[in-house]
Amino acid sequence: MDLFINLAINGIATGMLIFLIACGLTLIFGLMDVLNFAHGGIFAWGAFVGVWGYSVTQNFLISIVLAVIAGLLIGLITEYLIIRPVYGNHIQQILITLGFMLVLSEFIKVVFGPNILAAQKPPFLQDYWLVGDVTIIKYRAFTIVVGFIIFVAIMAVLKYTKIGLIVRAGVMDKEMIQALGVNIRLVFIGVFMVGSALAALGGALFAPSSGVAYAEMGMEFGIFAFIVVIIGGMGSVPGSLIAALLVGLSNVFMAYYVPSLAMAVTMILMFLVLIFRPEGLFKVSGVSNK
């Protein structure tokens, strides 16, 4: 039982981190019809900036804030330089964002050196709680809480604020929103920056929990995020949460019991969704997958 709960907590924590990347990806796709293959690169940048910030300031909060700022900036640069010239051309978007992904991860090696960085947990999250005979690692609980808060915050913004209304309407029908006098370009930039910041936050939270930050993690988690977005339904935030938890849990359990099949089970999940429900678990009206 102890083991089961531990694995479950671990899985949920991993799922929350994947959710942080995937929700930006899914929002950007739903609103702008852009699939950003560079998203994982921003995740890796978040991790490196977070680790660097913590080693310089020794303050966890500041390191997180630095990572988020880095995410916002990279998001702005990406939108401005990479996405803007190729709006409306899917193939060029896919090609160019993959190229930028590689530039981003190589640039990490230029700035932070080619080696793997060791990441430390802040002291107040280092040990664990004992509840009965179950040990709960503090940092994982912290990750779950942060992920959940972010999810609730996104849903609240989307549901109850004017900006959220515009974004939701934009996902359904861009032309109509423009016709109503909304500057959709600004909304695009905003959503892109927030999505990137969330990915960077995910990276900054991930590095301490795994203990390392390496440049290739962007690609690795980027792939997870794509799978999650496919399973959850492109454009759906709750869908990406459910799918991320599903992927996180199945991955952790399989990694424990049948380690060699850990990656395969995620793929099988995706295959099943693609065969039986290609629009994903949660279909969003207005977003077509054809």
């Binding site: 293959f37 899917h90 896919i94 792939i223 496919i230 060699s260 990656m263 290609p278």
Partner: peptide, 28 residues
């Protein structure tokens, strides 16, 4: 599996599949 869907899907699926093969080649 994916060619009836938008071009994104084939790109994502093949990327993930290639990664699966990489892991397979490392583990087997």
């Amino acid at each position: 599996l994916t060619l009836r869907l938008k071009s994104h899907y084939y790109a994502m699926l093949t990327l993930a599949l290639a990664n699966l093969f990489l892991v397979l080649a490392e583990k087997w």
